[in-house]
Design a protein around this nucleic acid. Sequence first.
RNA 1: GCCCCCAUCGUCUAGUGGCCCAGGACAUCACCCUUUCAAGGUGAAGAUCGCCGGUUCGAAUCCGGCUGGGGGUACCA
Length: 486
Amino acid sequence: MTSHAVRVRIAPSPTGDPHVGTAYMALFNLAFARQQGGQFILRVEDTDRARLVEGSEQEIYRSLRWLELEWDEGPDRGGPFGPYRQSERLPLYQTYARQLVELGHAYECWCTPERLEQVRAEQRRQSQPPRYDRFCLGKTRAQRATEPGFGERSVVRMLIPDSPPLVFDDLIRGETHAPFPDDQVILKSDGFPTYHLAVVVDDHEMRISHVTRGEEWISSTPKQLLLYLWLGWEPPKFAHFPLLRNPDRSKISKRKNPAARLLWFREQGYLPAALRNFLALMGWSMPDGREIFSFDDLVEHFAWERFSPVGPIFDVEKLDWLNHQYIQALPDEEFLRQARPFLLHDGEEEAIRRLIAPLKERTKRLADISEQVDFLYAEGSSADPSLLLKQGLEAGAAGEALRTATELVRTVDPFEPEPLEAAFNAEGERRGWKRRSFLMTVRVAATGKTATPPLFDTLAALGRERTIARLQAAAAHLDAAARAAR
RNA sequence: GCCCCCAUCGUCUAGUGGCCCAGGACAUCACCCUUUCAAGGUGAAGAUCGCCGGUUCGAAUCCGGCUGGGGGUACCA
């Protein structure tokens, strides 16, 4: 069969929180499929019953959809080549495994894990590559049962020939050499296939045209090439992506790096478009060097040649910058909508509404927002007198400034940034206070912080009553501190 | 140990024999702007293109070796 239709797939395993690498693969696969007018398939590789995690499959769907990387065929939406869950395709793998045994390309093995471990240990001691010693090859069950290290339930192993294909063409790396394979198990004793059998059978049955996966799979490609050969199938094209790395250059892992968890990005408040953009910058670049671009741009310019085979370190600082760029470009209502899940207090949204512009400018991750407006809820903890006095005004002047500010806040109408600013400017100038000192004193008194959004926006967000209360409380504290000092 | 992959500023990268004594971005630093913090603007610092040999009139770009990093080495994917 020589179909030229492009069909690509990602094949995650539901063994825990969705992995960022899954999104990385999905992004480029989808882009390639869209560019070629092909299909993007999601297949769940749940053949490892021991590591299966309940609910993990749903989380994969959820996180990929959050990233807006939708698939054309998959377990939850069907398609012409289903089922798309490997655990539902068992008879298929068993049929092919049996066929391979009959053809003499595979054989049964009854060795116990203990015996296998023993063999490997011995080979290691002699600096030999660890390979199965074919102890069971050519034996019947009855014959083998009389010998040591026999287990009741058998597995099926590949019988690797003397000269298997070890070279293949990789879309990213060009001609690539891979190690000589072992007599790999293809059907486990629980009747489930291992990755190697399942991936070949499914990729073929699902008409996958380009197999893409992480670089960690290069070493197992010869086994799969052999399977294609034995089954008489045309192998797909291969592309082994560089591996995303931790800052210490090891393969990105959940243990060392929170960013390995796809859900982490949503929790932190990264925008899907920003994450997609950032992922597209890992190991890949635009022909014109642009670093900010959309998924559609990627679709338009995608080319395998633009991949670098080097495993990039996942640099969260640059992601923060990118995310900030995207946040700043958000329309106000959209910003509010995105921010909503990160708000912690009742009525916070209304207060924030007045601060949208300055907040957009100051937010790298949406999860930062609450901290930036926490002064709105800092009742009772009015400003520390020593902090107030560090803002450039002498004790007497500071107290006077606060009383003046209180009066202005009480009378300015409407209670909006512009009139407030005009009034404060005029009054500050009349009294001869340095603008900076005057406003900082008021800022600290009203918010307890030295860094806030622009003062008059902040006061407007706080509201007239609360502002008055805080300024008065701060002035009182200042007086009390002065009395105590005397 | 054995096998495979990889190697340009701290990080992400451009670069496919001369345009490169290496360009951009993030981060860093300085200055400007400024009511703070940001944002924005300007500028600086930062890579003997891992090392050694070779090919060539000419190498970051091609070849070999070394070193370093990573991955694989499972009845895990």
